[in-house]
């Protein structure tokens, strides 16, 4: 699998990553080499094999539907880039 520069631009957009135009061809080359490695997976027929999502066969724990967290908005917002009146500020989304 060889990726073109346009593929990298599309993937970078999906991942919301700004890539310097000068670096696009390097990423295309690196990712193509990585995908070549990954394609060794096709050496094995996995028809009928159950996919394994998790290393241990464990059941998901449930808990009672109770409020256990306290509101720490001020503490959490201390590390935010920009806040005002308890709100996170971002550039204008709706005109």
């Amino acid at each position: 699998m060889s990726l073109e520069k346009t593929d990298i631009e599309k993937i970078a957009h999906l991942a919301r990553l700004e890539i310097d135009p000068d670096d696009v061809s390097r990423y295309a080359r690196d990712l193509s080499v990585i995908l070549e490695l990954v394609e060794q997976m096709n050496q094995v027929d996995t028809g009928g094999v159950q996919p394994m999502a998790h290393p241990l066969q464990m059941a998901q724990r449930l808990r009672a539907d109770e409020v256990t967290e306290t509101n720490q908005r001020d503490k959490f917002q201390q590390i935010a880039p920009q806040v005002e009146a308890g709100l996170y500020l971002v550039p204008k989304v709706i005109e």
């Binding site: 990726l3 593929d7 990298i8 993937i11 970078a12 999906l14 991942a15 990553l17 890539i19 990423y27 690196d30 990712l31 990585i34 995908l35 990954v38």
Partner: peptide, 12 residues
């Protein structure tokens, strides 16, 4: 960035 992009591609 490489790994985010590989993952994004594999899941797309």
């Amino acid at each position: 960035k490489r790994r985010i992009m590989i993952g994004t591609y594999a899941l797309s």
